[in-house]
Design a protein around this nucleic acid. Sequence first.
DNA 1: AGGCAGGCTTTTA
DNA 2: TAAAAGCCTGCC
Length: 271
Amino acid sequence: MTVSITDDFDLQAIADSGQCFRWDPIPGGMRILHGKECLLVRPVGKNRYDFSCTEDAFERIWAPYLDLAADYAAIRARIDPEKDPFLAAACAHQAGIRILRQDPWEMLISFIISQNRNIPAIRNSIAKLCEAAGEQRRDEEGNTYFTFPAPEAVAALSGEAMDRCRLGYRDRYVRSAAEKAADGSIDFTALSGASDEELLKQLLAIYGVGVKVASCVMLFGFHRVNAFPVDVWIRRVLEEHYPRGYPREEYAPYNGIYQQYLFAEIRSGRK
DNA sequence: AGGCAGGCTTTTA
DNA sequence: TAAAAGCCTGCC
């Protein structure tokens, strides 16, 4: 089906934003993996895209996933270039990013895996985990892909199979989280109803999850768009561009969205 | 109690 | 060789 998207939507910018690890370029577009689902997207004209899904799947899965109901241009426009030139420039340069509504379980595992590693290494481990414990399927064009595995499937992996995912010391974190998600002691449905403060507390109680990973899971898995992950890159932004402090209160409730523009900006090499 | 140093697997540049 | 979307443990 053809979809019209007039708000910010840049496939490459989103793929490069560090929030998703299973977006892959295909000829003329992007293949997007999300949980067990797969979507092929190709731009076909100004603000128009070919989606390899039915209208029903678009309404039910992909429009929510891509957060198409939100107005990112308006969120960018809230920043005053006079008061915060660096963030305003970041918003302008990095326009096209959206915060995806990803699966909480997939985000928990993905960001546990992310710690102390760069993005290519993260993608590699996640792909291997999907191959080891996910289901093999074919996309609309007959190419194979693997679903993101269910908690039970990860918990059931042998030590050897886990080793092949190259998780390093994180393997026990992944296994523990999978066991707790499988037996219900991590309950994503219940967590989705918690306040930001309570959700953070619950996530920090998970073995292998610190403040940085918890913030990413909140932002990308629970769509808590005021969560503000501080990693080495954002730390650099704050030190170099906000020596007198960063106005978190002023940017509520969208701190997480602005964080993404800052992150993309500093990683792009622009100063 | 809360802060800090050191260690940790592997990949990437 | 250093750095990478960090966290845990032990020590003080």
